[in-house]
Computed example of a mutant assay.
Amino acid sequence: MKLTIRKKRNITRLIRKITFITIVILMIFTLVASNEITHNQLSITAQPLNQCLSTDLLPCTDPSQETRLQPFIPNPELNNQQRFLSAIAKKLPTIPQPGTYEYILLRAYGAVFVNQDVGIKLPLKDIFANEQETQEFQSSLTMVHVDGTNDCYLQKSAADALNKARIQQHIPLKSGYGSGDCTRTFNTNLRFWHKYANDKILAKVQQGQETRILGLVAPPGTSQHLWGLAIDLRVSNKEQIKALNENGWFQTVENDVPHWTYVGLSKENLLLFGFNKKIVRGITYWITPL
């Protein structure tokens, strides 16, 4: 009888030890796995795009291992339009069909969708329907004040890049220091449209019969200014242009001379992403190949 009780106690102790060891092993495994995930996440860094785009570093992005933090590199064997579309397809859930109003807008204002800066946020479409949609998007942005201005804000990466350029060179805003040069509301966009155009012209734009107006003023809900990635500046010399270009700012809307877009690429890499260089009356524009 005593032997049986002793055996039972030994078995009970053994079961407890096994249970305890199992729990400890599971805890260790969980901690190790958790640490590995954290380590892997922290080790994923966005390699500077200009380094990745050098000839001998093109293989730095492996499509099978692609993450949102890795810069996208277009296939250089594709034509300009294909390279551009492959880049914006990473940002836009749906690419508009050629001939549609959305496609016309993308052709005019879609330069920002190639931006590889992980610090910026892009809209999921190229047109906002109303003030509410605009405010919902803008409220999700990280905005930073442009140095030396009054109530002028841009998305942080764009503002930081512009501030660096303005340290290199004196580059004033188009109308002084007002917010109208920077990120705009839907209603401000609408007011500018009514100043230079009307509903009849809008109908022609939507039908593809009028596109020149897009170089003067953006239709309601379509301005790059709504996205916090554009600004109107007074630029008068090559040194100012160089400072802006070196910090990712380019003129991308043909005939809109004061309008500058934060593309976030170097001048050399604009060609790789399919942009067409076009000089109009001495002004260099980088146009989407659509």
Rank of each mutant, 00 (worst) to 15 (best):
P123G: 07
L226K: 08
I283G: 05
T19C: 03
L154P: 04
D160R: 05
L57K: 15
N269E: 01
D199W: 01
E66C: 05
S179W: 02
W260S: 01
E239Y: 10
N198F: 09
Q207V: 05
I167K: 13
A158W: 02
Q168L: 15
K125C: 03
K277R: 12
T211S: 13
F192P: 13
V114C: 06
T149Q: 13
P172Q: 03
T222E: 11
A87M: 02
N75W: 08
K2D: 15
T94Q: 11
G178L: 05
E268C: 11
N163C: 03
L53I: 09
K91L: 01
I283A: 07
A108M: 10
E210H: 05
Q70I: 06
L233V: 06
T288V: 13
S34F: 03
T30L: 11
V235L: 01
N245G: 12
W227H: 12
E268P: 02
N79S: 04
D160C: 02
R184K: 09
N80E: 06
Q47F: 13
Q251S: 06
I127Q: 15
K91C: 02
I73S: 01
S34M: 13
T261Y: 14
L3Q: 14
V144E: 13
R212T: 15
T188V: 10
A46I: 00
L124S: 15
P98T: 00
R191N: 15
Q206H: 02
W249S: 07
V253Q: 05
H39A: 07
Q251C: 03
K121H: 06
M143L: 13
L202C: 03
L31H: 08
Q132Y: 04
C52R: 15
D62R: 03
L106C: 05
V280E: 09
S179N: 08
R9Y: 06
F250D: 09
L58M: 12
Q81A: 00
P172V: 01
V32A: 12
T38D: 12
K200P: 00
T38V: 09
S157D: 08
E210L: 10
E66L: 15
I287S: 05
K195L: 14
K164E: 03
T284N: 09
M27L: 14
V217L: 07
S236L: 05
V205S: 01
R234F: 15
P96T: 05
L57R: 15
T67N: 07
Q70L: 09
K125M: 02
T22G: 15
Q138F: 10
N247W: 09
A87F: 10
A33K: 07
E77N: 08
G176Y: 00
V235H: 04
K238C: 00
L3S: 15
I120W: 06
N79K: 06
N115P: 04
L42T: 14
N115S: 06
D256M: 03
P123W: 07
R166K: 04
E66N: 04
D126Q: 14
A87T: 08
C182S: 13
E136R: 09
K204I: 01
D62N: 15
I73Y: 07
I44E: 02
T188M: 08
S175A: 07
A46S: 14
W193Y: 11
I167T: 09
T4G: 08
L202G: 02
Q97L: 10
K195T: 10
K121W: 04
G178F: 00
D62P: 11
K174H: 10
V205L: 09
G282C: 03
G208L: 10
Y196Q: 12
R83H: 11
D151K: 11
E66R: 08
